[in-house]
Design a protein around this nucleic acid. Structure first.
Lengths: 212, 212, 212, 212
DNA sequence: GATGAATGAGTATTCATTCAT
DNA sequence: TATGAATGAATACTCATTCAT
């Protein structure tokens, strides 16, 4: 391993160290109430150091999205590639993938909603913006492909595939946000999983022509 | 009308004047970016005056929720009271009601999510907290009553009524938030309504035992 | 005196109070080393208050120039208006005016040089910029008018009037800056006046065709 | 050449490399806006290395003055040593020298004014301070010697030689600063030279008893 | 010597909130 | 009641300087 490469790894390790700290702080206090000093303290670094790795607070926050989006993309893409599955089987796999995505980072939806604010977008570097946009686009594209196939094969009801994928995604994010908003009251983490399972079952029944 | 009462009315009028201004400002800039001075200017009042009617910025924001919750409550309660409707008819009415709620104040969901932040809740007066909690509880209770009835009559699938009402509400709020987050790209306001219609149709199909 | 007018006066008084404090602080520490808090403390106000009267630090600093430029303009304009003076007499009056300008505010030149930095100019409000530019232009215009007249009447040497006014102004500002730069060593304030007198005498001899 | 000496030379070479880079950066951005990292990048060195050669930023900046002061000193001393020149001829030579000094480093005056700030002086090493002071003193001494001679020989007007040299120097620096401050508007570099020529002509006429 | 990552003190600016009038 | 001038705590971000390698 060359010296160059070792440095590169060291640098990446630091980025991750900061990201992990940031995730903890942001998830506890939300974006506005979290200060860069909070994050620095949590990461056991000085405030100035954060700026060596992230242009500004917004970009640090947005970087949290990137990791989860990468994971989402891989999972969704994989489902699509399995050529010998029926649309219904693919839908099942997709729903499994969404569970895992949520497990990977329960903050995913909240982080991604923050991302949309026009003020936020202004402060992001074009590179990061592009990466995020591309991954989002691809993932949603792969999701709607599944629905398209199901509709064409006469298995799913005749709606626009994009609309179906919008509904699917909205249901997923709606459940997460709604349960998150109740978290103060209800600490039963499995409740979310159960609700998600019911939601997906209803959705599945709702779009299939053949009701099992 | 006594002098006391007249004063009371005058006061309420002022509160509404401020709430209307706040809604305009918040919906344009979001909570964090809106300043009390912005709102005062919009209401054609001075900043100090706002504090005569609302304890602080958080409470002013939370008050926005109250109005919409009151509207929601009335509509949902009304659906429930119509004794001669079948569960499926009630579900249809409920979905109609949700459309109207969204029309009444498209910011409803965003406002209500903000409400959940633990930092926000700390700053609210107990009185306001109680009112909000009560209305939420009642409305959601009325919604789950509809599902309960449907399940008991063997029309809806056998799930816990609260779970069904959670899924229903999540779907509603998920669609709104998801479409809101795309608003920069997609300016077609009707798209939301269409997606909402599809979502409700899928949901309805998904929970009914008899597929039409 | 109406209430409106009284408020206006009160506001102007505050501005002056801040300007006076700023002048003291800036003249002691220079622009970069002076903090807004220093100035606020000196003015017996809070930092936030400064921003009610001046957009930012640069604009506060630039405002110092405005007062002295107004004074300069009035004096120079007045010299020019005295129709019955010979060019030589006008030159004498001009030199007197410059003494007074320096007396009025010894920081004039330093402040005005700071004004030129392109970074500074970016942060100024267009209104202030315009005022400053206009006054500078008019004053320099009036000065060169004196030389023009002298040249046309055959009293001064044949050079471009603008060049003569540039040299005159450079000599004036050069003396002030040079003496200011020695101030740590030499506390004799009259020395500047004496040097200025000699400088003006040399200048006068240098441009007159008839040497007395 | 011993190994010691070679090292010494190598070290001096580095110092010059840094000074040259610093001059480029300072002249482009000014002192405050230039960062040590800017200079390090320009010098193709790391920030830490600068501190091996210069105690701090102020001392690096002050070192720029030293080179130009050395040049100034050599030129002025040389004029004085030419025994067979008349005072008027010496004055002409002096003015030529000043042109060259300006050519050698147009930033000379600005750099030297920065040097005066009391905050700056505090951070300089005594050694550097002494060198700068000595060179300044000697150069100004040599200049006033020329005027002294002229006065004694009855060629120049009867003023204190130091005052005359102050006026001469002020005129020189005033022109440079004044033209520098107009540089945004006027890009004609020769204009400065022309104005300087006129200024010197006026000065010369102004101090000579025999008007040519 | 040279590096450059890390530091952390320093500061302009904002804005919710107060309170004398 | 209503005002709006004044407050001052809070915070993102910068950059000269250090020091382990």
């Amino acid at each position: 391993m060359g010296i160059q490469e070792r440095k590169e790894r060291e640098k990446e390790r630091r980025r991750q160290q900061i990201i992990v700290a940031a995730k903890r702080v942001f998830s506890e206090k939300g974006f506005s109430k979290s200060t860069m000093e909070d994050i620095a303290t949590e990461a056991e670094l000085s405030p100035g150091t954060l700026y060596l790795y992230f242009k500004n607070k917004e970009e640090l926050y947005a970087s949290l999205s990137l990791r989860i989006l990468q994971y989402l993309h891989i999972r969704v893409e994989h489902v699509n590639k399995e050529a010998d599955l029926t649309p219904v089987q693919k839908l099942d796999k997709l729903m499994e993938a969404m569970y895992d995505v949520y497990d990977f980072d329960p903050l995913i939806i909240i982080t991604m909603f923050h991302l949309q604010s026009s003020e936020t977008l202004k402060n992001l570097s074009p590179r990061l913006m592009t990466q995020i946009e591309e991954l989002s686009r691809k993932s949603l594209g792969d999701i709607s492909k599944i629905f398209k196939e199901g509709i064409e094969k006469g298995v799913f009801i005749e709606k626009h595939p994009v609309a179906l994928s919008d509904v699917f995604w909205s249901l997923f994010s709606g459940i997460i946000l709604w349960e998150a908003s109740k978290k103060i009251v209800n600490e039963d983490k499995d409740y979310l999983k159960k609700t998600l399972a019911i939601a997906f079952e209803i959705f599945s029944r709702g779009i299939r022509k053949d009701i099992p």
